[in-house]
């Protein structure tokens, strides 16, 4: 029981996110109106994605330092779940966007090419492409030991190159996306204090859920490996 406290915390926080996130009083801004509630879902997806990729990066470093196979498995699984969260981030973002940015006179997909230029979207696309490439690289190597080592090296290299650029680039290009200056949704004046009461727990809840899913996947993978060895 003492080990599963964080799983319970995750469920409690997410239940709180869904009820309070839909019920609390939010400021009604022009353009945004009620869609602002998507902040508790859309932004949290990106936060969780970054947290999961960071854990994957740390596991890659640990693998290179110790050579223990468990770190390689963790590194891969955290990257995979991070990709899922990234895709969910795009999904929630596209719902939000179609009510706020898209031209209401045309169907939403007609505004695609002008919206796809958004620096934040480019940054997220780069992040996802890097981790897709990581998966391709892993699958292209047969030897297990070599696969683990080379993909760990790529993981570290890509992470170290990627994150400065996706934090710096959006601040240098013109953007419609909120949070151009400073850290999106973390700024003190950015969001209503009422919403912050839901937003911070939501980030923690979603990130814990991601970690939980990944630990299950890691355990499954270890069982499969054991079966192979037998």
């Amino acid at each position: 029981m003492y080990k599963s406290w964080w799983k319970i915390l995750s469920v409690v926080l997410l239940v709180y996110t869904f009820t309070a996130g839909i019920l609390i009083n939010v400021p009604r801004l022009p353009q945004l109106q009620e869609t602002i509630r998507n902040l508790f879902f859309h932004v949290c997806m990106w936060f969780s994605m970054m947290i999961l990729f960071t854990i994957s990066f740390v596991n890659a470093i640990k693998y290179l330092r110790t050579g223990k196979f468990i770190y390689d498995i963790s590194s891969r699984q955290y990257a995979a779940v991070g990709i899922v969260f990234g895709l969910l981030g795009y999904l929630t973002g596209s719902i939000w966007m179609s009510y706020t940015w898209a031209d209401p006179n045309n169907p939403a997909y007609a505004s695609f090419s002008s919206i796809a230029r958004e620096p934040k979207l480019i940054g997220a696309a780069i992040a996802l492409l890097v981790y897709f490439a990581y998966m391709v690289l892993r699958d292209s190597i047969m030897d297990m030991d070599k696969k683990a080592r080379i993909s760990a090296v790529y993981n570290i290299f890509a992470y170290a190159m990627l994150f400065p650029s996706i934090w710096i680039l959006p601040r240098m290009l013109p953007s419609l996306h909120p949070g151009g200056e400073g850290n999106p949704a973390l700024n003190f004046n950015d969001i209503d204090s009422n919403m912050r009461l839901v937003f911070y727990p939501a980030v923690i809840g979603w990130a814990l859920l991601g970690v939980w899913i990944t630990t299950l996947k890691i355990r499954l993978k270890i069982l499969k490996e054991k079966k192979l060895i037998k």
């Binding site: 780069i126 492409l129 490439a133 710096i168 680039l169 240098m172």
Partner: peptide, 13 residues
């Protein structure tokens, strides 16, 4: 495949 996503930010700059 490995390089294009990494080089995009530098190329954009």
């Amino acid at each position: 495949i490995l390089g294009f996503p990494i080089i995009i930010p530098q190329l954009m700059l």
